[in-house]
């Protein structure tokens, strides 16, 4: 009974946080629409360039002129998910400047609820463009229902990993802005070397070596491979490292984020205005 009551309380609190965050984000709707449009612009250039390249080289790795559109539609959804890394700093900084963070911190709820609230609200906000591009992908390159559902789960796990990164960035955004800026700068390169919009095979060898060291590359790559192989078992058996890394990061990064959140917030508080 106690467990049921606690679960109900947690769900009620998370739903309150989600409702509030969604309303805050929808206050200026055009900002939201433009952020979705910028992601479309980001995938247009690779589509044009790769489209030309495929005329001279019909196959680059797993990709050709037929299935490359999936690469870009997935890239669009990855861009939407990538915003997880900025939504935490943005939300925390807003709360910091509005001075609402203390009211939340002394709230009688688990800090995990606060983080889940931000995570879920962003998923809700991006759900419309995400589903649109996912359906477009299914239209251009159909896959089985089971693979599509599995992909949704994979996207959710990728979102968890990115929210873990976002959480760590968010903590520094309100406690030490210098460190936040440096981490943001480094993250820019991590994303740059993660083959979101261009396939691994077109890069020169020394860049490929750098990409091989980037965990995010494997996370994004498994989404694409699952789609074009359209056979979950074969994909898992062929790329076990990708999946292990994905699940490991999905558990570790949010936990590290929460640990740092508790440590830094309590010890150093919110500084700098």
């Amino acid at each position: 009974m106690e467990l049921i009551r606690k679960t109900k309380d947690n769900i009620s609190q998370i739903s309150a946080l989600v409702e509030k965050n969604v309303k805050l984000q929808l206050r200026y709707k055009f900002g939201l629409v433009t952020s979705f449009t910028i992601s479309i612009v980001s995938i247009l250039m690779p589509l044009i360039i790769m489209g030309n390249l495929f005329q001279t080289r019909p196959q680059i790795g797993n990709w050709n002129s037929t299935n490359f559109v999936i690469y870009q539609f997935l890239a669009y959804n990855i861009f939407l998910m990538r915003d997880m890394t900025s939504i935490f700093p943005q939300q925390f900084r807003q709360e910091k400047y509005w001075k609402t963070l203390p009211a939340l911190i002394i709230g009688p709820f688990n800090r995990l609820n606060l983080l889940l609230g931000i995570f879920l609200s962003h998923l809700i906000v991006i759900s419309v463009p995400f589903i649109t591009f996912f359906l477009l992908g299914l239209f251009f390159y159909p896959i089985s229902f089971i693979t599509a559902m599995f992909l949704i789960i994979l996207f959710f796990i990728v979102a968890l990993v990115l929210s873990g990164i976002g959480l760590i960035l968010g903590i520094f955004a309100i406690s030490n802005e210098n460190i936040w800026r440096i981490l943001n700068f480094l993250l820019y390169f991590v994303f740059w070397f993660s083959c979101i919009t261009y396939p691994y095979e077109i890069f020169p060898q020394f860049i490929q070596n750098i990409i091989n060291l980037n965990p995010l590359y494997y996370l994004f790559d498994i989404l694409r491979l699952t789609w074009i192989q359209d056979n979950i078992i074969i994909t898992i058996l062929t790329y076990p490292f990708h999946f292990i890394l994905l699940f490991l990061l999905a558990v570790l990064l949010p936990l590290i984020g929460i640990y740092i959140f508790n440590l830094i917030y309590k010890k150093y508080g919110i500084t700098g205005y």
């Binding site: 309150a16 409702e19 509030k20 309303k23 001075k99 203390p102 709230g107 009688p108």
Partner: peptide, 23 residues
């Protein structure tokens, strides 16, 4: 604390409702 602790971008009712649900 230190003034208001309010969310400016949602309504007064939504502010109160949010904190009531949390508490």
């Amino acid at each position: 604390l230190e003034g208001e602790l309010l969310y400016y971008r949602i309504t007064g009712y939504d502010n109160l409702k949010f904190f009531c649900k949390i508490y």
